[in-house]
Amino acid sequence: MNPKHLPNLISVARILLVYPVVSLLLQQRFGAALALFVVAGLSDGVDGFLAKHYHWQSRLGSYLDPLADKLLLISSYVALGWLGLMPVWLVGLVVLRDLVIFGGAVAYYFMLRPFEGQPTLLSKLNTVLQLVLVFAVIVRQGIAPFPAAVAEALLWLTAFTTLASGAHYVQVWGSSYWREKQRQGPDAA
């Protein structure tokens, strides 16, 4: 095995952790779910470090890494919402944001070309807050005391950044689309 494939293998392993994390959450085995959730989070940092530090980035990795993140986050939000531990409106907002971003990327691809965007600082902040909120909700389930006021603040910050980052992507892609269409002229199909 070529070491440059290690980041992609770690991303695949993170994808494979989604089912056990969700299964443990639904069984309300919160300690074990939290342990796997932390392992998945740490593996995200490891694969990113390896890819950047050793220049082992790949096109496949550019798809696998965010896919692994989104699968873990969305699945965790849905499971926690199912258990009544996460507000349904927030679960819907998180899922809707990602559907809008994915739909926008697909539409942009078919209408113009692949979108060459990178995650924005706001989007990265949103991902961190989403992860921290899942962590906090799981920890509050008897693993360790976690102040309710902090969890409530995290919830509202996560909701705000979810809305703001989703709107920002729509604005960026929409502006890029209209600039490109104007550059192509009125005869562009």
Rank of each mutant, 00 (worst) to 15 (best):
L125A: 15
L125R: 07
N126R: 02
N126W: 00
N126E: 04
T127K: 05
T127H: 05
T127N: 04
V128E: 09
V128I: 11
L129N: 00
L129Y: 01
Q130I: 04
Q130D: 13
Q130M: 10
Q130Y: 00
Q130C: 12
L131M: 15
L131K: 10
L131G: 13
L131I: 14
L131V: 14
V132G: 05
L133Q: 04
L133G: 03
F135D: 00
F135N: 00
A136F: 07
V137Q: 01
V137I: 15
V137C: 05
I138L: 07
I138N: 00
I138C: 00
I138R: 08
I138M: 13
V139F: 05
V139K: 06
V139L: 11
V139W: 06
R140I: 05
R140K: 13
R140W: 08
Q141E: 11
Q141S: 15
Q141V: 09
Q141P: 03
G142Y: 09
I143E: 09
A144P: 06
A144N: 10
A144S: 14
P145N: 10
P145Q: 14
P145D: 14
F146N: 02
F146K: 01
F146C: 08
F146Q: 07
F146Y: 13
F146D: 05
P147V: 08
P147G: 11
P147W: 03
P147N: 03
A148L: 10
A148P: 12
A148R: 15
A148G: 09
A148F: 14
A148W: 15
A149E: 12
A149C: 09
A149F: 13
V150I: 11
V150A: 14
V150Q: 08
V150R: 15
V150E: 06
V150Y: 08
V150S: 10
V150D: 09
A151N: 06
A151D: 10
E152H: 13
E152Q: 11
E152T: 14
A153K: 11
A153H: 09
A153E: 08
A153I: 11
L154F: 04
L154M: 06
L155K: 01
L155Y: 10
W156N: 12
L157C: 15
T158D: 01
T158I: 05
A159F: 04
A159I: 09
A159P: 11
A159N: 11
F160E: 01
T161L: 12
T161R: 00
T161S: 15
T161I: 07
T161V: 06
T161Q: 07
T162P: 10
T162Q: 02
L163F: 09
L163N: 11
L163P: 00
L163W: 07
L163Q: 02
A164V: 12
A164P: 01
A164S: 03
A164F: 04
S165C: 07
G166N: 06
A167D: 07
A167S: 05
A167W: 08
A167L: 07
A167M: 10
A167T: 10
H168C: 08
H168N: 10
H168S: 12
Y169R: 02
Y169M: 04
Y169N: 04
Y169A: 03
V170K: 03
V170L: 06
V170Y: 01
V170M: 07
Q171G: 10
